[in-house]
Design a protein around this nucleic acid. Sequence first.
DNA 1: CCCTTGATCAACCAGAAGGTTGACAACGAG
DNA 2: CTCGTTGTCAACCTTCTGGTTGATCAAGGG
Lengths: 120, 120
Amino acid sequence: MSDRLSRVFAALADPTRRDLVARLSVADATVGDLAAPYDVSIQAVSKHLKVLEGAGLVSRRKEAQRRPVHLEAEVLDLMTMWIERYRRQAEERFQRLDGLLAEMNEPTADTPPLEEGTAS
Amino acid sequence: MSDRLSRVFAALADPTRRDLVARLSVADATVGDLAAPYDVSIQAVSKHLKVLEGAGLVSRRKEAQRRPVHLEAEVLDLMTMWIERYRRQAEERFQRLDGLLAEMNEPTADTPPLEEGTAS
DNA sequence: CCCTTGATCAACCAGAAGGTTGACAACGAG
DNA sequence: CTCGTTGTCAACCTTCTGGTTGATCAAGGG
């Protein structure tokens, strides 16, 4: 199951699990409550929750025979950071390209050295 | 393969594919170039690219027998929007809870009716 | 003290994912 | 024209995933 980030992305790749997260963002809920709207078995939902838990997106506390589930929203930031990093990079590259094109139209004496990325 | 958002999340759930995206954020590249650093077959990388393409994260143009791959960074915004939406929701809920606790410590005349979420 | 409620565990199954190898298609260079 | 380069397609294999059912456990309520 590889790394943390992979687990988080994989966890949210399933529509049912995304819906669970959406509902848990409103309020904590028990497994039974969560399972009600779907027409799958409660065991299936329990498995989904285990996946979310494995990704750190959710925690379960113990309360009598009930097991209320709680959304750990901070983990979402991990993803946002990853995504934004590369979106920004791509954007900058776009800008650089624009600059380059502008320069080609209006050559100003020196040509600045272009570093091509060796992304390990 | 269900919906768009699922495809995007699933695409990024694989470390190799995330690395491809990272490298493509720096510059477009051919399949061969992209495959070089990994010790899997070029066909495997081609498959990965097909997944990324299916998610709309990448496009391939045709250039002689070469097929340069280009990152379509806008799709990343889709994810960011989804994530931020629920992170924010969870945060607001937290704030509301804080407010509630504060109120309980300092009761002011009337008791406002508390609606507990019947999250259908 | 039973037995209902809430949830997990275990075994199983079908299908998707990620990898492999081998064949083939498209194009440019000699 | 033929050959090497660049990639894709197709078939196959193994592992992971999401679902099922049946058994079991833990905690109250009668």
